[in-house]
Nucleic acid binder design. Structure first.
Lengths: 341, 341
DNA sequence: CTGTTAGCGCGTTCAT
DNA sequence: ATGAACGCGCTAACAG
């Protein structure tokens, strides 16, 4: 028993193979009578379409490649879930590769995706510049998700489409929450210098302080690189230096958790001694002790939007999308300021 | 400029296309002179092998499918990273699909993988029975990773290969650690009834108690279903009932963290009032407060072993593998027993 | 609208 | 050991 092909279907239906192909792809209108015959033949023969052969014939891959820093970063998992959810409905496949935080590897993977003829590429929180990416991917549809790559201003402006939340607003909301609780000395654990998201959150922090009439204090800002251990270290040093503060706004939940670690090690209670607010709302953030107040990012939705956008790019449609909304989730790690003894 | 194919290479090298093909696949010995000619032609033409066409010609997919419960389960991410690491070196591709904890979806995906002619399938912590899986996958290489599917004893025994750690030993080690710290009333948060891993951990718990001469107390065992929130709930109820205990052995880190939540809400300090030990050593477990003592599972290594095994299955080699070693990681959540006031 | 012809780039019989 | 011929299953270009 050989595999039944569209030719067999064609023969039985009394039409040509190409008509069957056209029927399958709905690429043109077909006589109702023939459609019926084809459908009958398909049912009778138990014909199954083999996408592989089509891909081989068209030289298109029907794949979209995703490069991300790692699998086990919680928010990346959520984004991937969102992407996966919609992509399968469109007959595309997902190819996920991880950079392990190495820029060279990111570039290498991008090149590989190009030679493998991916139909589109999504870069999640990449570290290379827009111009580098564009140089490699040429006119392939590329989408930047989350942290956009740094634009090297020395080169021509190459604006790749990107999906991002309103980070400045998030930074403002977080800081404002602390302010409203009566805190005045608020530490900010910022993200990497070259990260636009991080910078915008810092901007939001500044604007919030400003609108409350509190002067910006350089000494209260440390760089946690979105990293748990680095943030832990930074806060620990701050504490050792004896710098005073009653609250922390961390630019990521991982940073916030690192800060909590440091506070814990120094015997400081959260939120009684120090309030902490994060940014991301990772799945785990509601389960740290105490549960973390944070800014919620709809990661899965971000993934869905990103892939929709990419699909539109592939098909040449004008992408239409809405920026997902962020909001504050108040849990137990923040509390009204009270002067310590 | 058209794509350069193996035919072009053949022509330039003065050999036949099939010889080039044989050279590429090393499927038979070729005259040294011709090899040189071929290599020279490849270099000159910048020829690139196109796997897609080969796949189409052989009707093999060069893919292995993985079904897992979700992307954003921390240990699954680690396993996937391990799999990904070795699979790319072998020219295979990874197709990951998630079941969202639904058994029907698991079965559906399995069927889909079969019709897509996956070369092998890995099921991570599946929920269907071995016989169900085997019925669908026939003689396709299937590997069960972690939690094996429940074997329905009513049907014929169908032993699918599976990679697992020594869960009984892990349960023993965890309990023993607590015992050595002087604890006598040790709560166990077990996993789902139908989960073999969970049952074995429970067995280890029992054996450890037994060897310490402590009678097993049914009331000290609750079912946390490996779930954070359920475990939280169960421990909360235990506390409300006034049942006495000084330590908890949770069958998963997520359960342990849930337990910690409950303790926190009841104003109990960890480890001063209650010691907690988990099982898994998730990336986050070192960062909860206090850092969690737990049994370390080498997830990434498990992934590597699983895919190696699958690759061996595909190529017909006799799979050789070693069961990965687990060990205890002592952090701050456990402490010597001291009678409370 | 539909059928015919000609590939896509490679693997795999057969012979020799 | 090597070449010729054919096949994989489908799409695309061209006629009509």
């Amino acid at each position: 028993m050989k595999k039944v092909t569209h030719k067999d279907v064609a023969k039985l239906a009394g039409v040509s193979p190409s008509t069957v192909s056209r029927y399958i792809n709905r690429s043109s209108f077909i006589d109702k009578v023939k459609v019926d015959a084809i459908e009958k033949a398909i049912a009778e023969l138990g014909y199954k379409y083999t996408k592989r052969a089509a891909i081989n014939a068209t030289l298109r891959s029907m794949k979209v490649g995703v490069v991300a820093a790692s699998y086990d970063s919680p928010h990346i998992s959520c984004i991937l879930a969102g992407i996966n959810k919609v992509i399968i409905q469109h007959g595309y496949e997902l190819r996920i590769e991880i950079t392990q935080w190495k820029t060279e590897r990111e570039l290498k993977l991008l090149k590989q995706f190009v030679t493998e003829k991916m139909d589109a590429i999504i870069v999640i929180g990449g570290h290379s510049s827009e111009s580098e990416i564009k140089a490699i991917t040429k006119n392939l549809p590329v989408l930047l998700l989350g942290t956009p790559a740094l634009t090297n201003s020395a080169l021509i402006a190459t604006h790749l489409p990107q999906i991002r939340i309103d980070n400045e607003l998030g930074g403002y909301m977080a800081t404002n929450h602390l302010l409203q609780l009566g805190h005045r000395k608020i530490v900010h654990i910022k993200g990497p210098e070259e990260n636009a998201d991080a910078n915008q959150r810092l901007l939001g922090y500044k604007r919030s302080l400003e609108s409350a009439g509190i002067p910006f204090d350089e000494k209260l800002v440390v760089n946690g690189h979105f990293s748990l251990s680095i943030s832990q270290n930074e806060i620990s040093q701050l504490l050792n230096k004896g710098i005073e503060f009653s609250a922390i706004f961390a630019a990521s939940d991982e940073s916030a958790i690192g800060a909590m670690q440091a506070l814990y090690q120094h015997g400081l209670a959260i939120p009684d001694d120090i309030s902490v607010i994060g940014f991301d709302n990772l799945p785990i953030s509601s389960f740290v002790i105490p549960p973390l107040t944070t800014i919620h990012q709809p990661f899965e939705e971000l993934g869905e939007i990103a892939i929709q956008y990419s699909l539109d790019l592939i098909s040449g449609n004008k992408p239409k999308y809405s920026i997902p909304i962020i909001n504050i989730v108040v849990r137990d790690s923040t509390k009204a300021f009270s002067a310590r003894d």
